[in-house]
Computed example of a mutant assay.
Amino acid sequence: MVGLYDGTDSTTEHFCGPDPLPVDNAQYCYVDNSVSWDQSFMQDGYTTGKYWVYMVIAHEWGHAVVEQNPEIEWGEPELQADCLAGAALYGGATDGLIAFGPDATKEFATDLSQIGDEASWSETNDHGDSLQRVNFFSLGKEYGVNGCLGDD
């Protein structure tokens, strides 16, 4: 895990292989198998609610799972990462490793809706539309990792 970086700091370069890490975003880097996130992305997202950070990191972790298991037919990578995020977060809650308040489900849906293909920095068909993102996250929440396997 690379973790936090400041994408606005032009004096420090942050890379995934030869590519610079994105400003105002988070990323799983397959080159060195790391997860990183821009400080401003997390701060801005946190203003919408306290579960933003959990969701973003779990989503990027989902990319790591997909990348490290190429023998599994996962389907659309971004939506599978959302599904695995739901599985990880709610699996952790079931196991008593993390606790969510009654507002968590609504907040996760709101956050996912804000970062669908409709987001200003996202390209069409990049992450799925808002409804797809919420549905895949909910699939992971309800059925765990097994619910995330297969075609979308």
Rank of each mutant, 00 (worst) to 15 (best):
E60K: 14
K141G: 06
S122M: 15
F100Q: 12
H63I: 06
E78Q: 04
Y54Q: 15
G49D: 07
T47N: 10
N69T: 11
G147C: 03
C83E: 06
E123T: 10
T48N: 12
C29S: 06
S40L: 13
D95M: 10
G7L: 01
G144C: 07
F136N: 14
K141F: 01
P20W: 00
A88D: 05
F15A: 07
A119S: 14
A87V: 04
I57F: 15
I115E: 11
S120V: 14
D129S: 02
L112N: 03
D111H: 14
A87F: 00
W37Q: 09
L4S: 15
P20M: 06
K141W: 02
A81M: 00
I98F: 13
C83I: 07
G3H: 11
M42V: 15
N25G: 05
Y28K: 05
G49H: 08
F137P: 01
L97S: 09
E76D: 01
T12D: 12
S40D: 15
A104R: 10
G45N: 08
G86A: 08
D9Q: 08
E73R: 10
K106G: 01
P70I: 09
M42K: 09
A64K: 13
C16S: 09
W74T: 04
T110R: 13
D151L: 05
R133Q: 05
M1E: 13
N69D: 03
D24Q: 10
G3A: 12
S40T: 15
S122C: 11
C29H: 06
D126F: 00
D38F: 07
D95F: 05
P70D: 07
Q114F: 05
V2E: 12
Y46V: 03
L112G: 04
Y30C: 00
P22Y: 02
G116R: 09
D117I: 09
L139K: 14
P22S: 03
L4W: 10
M55L: 15
L149S: 00
Q27K: 12
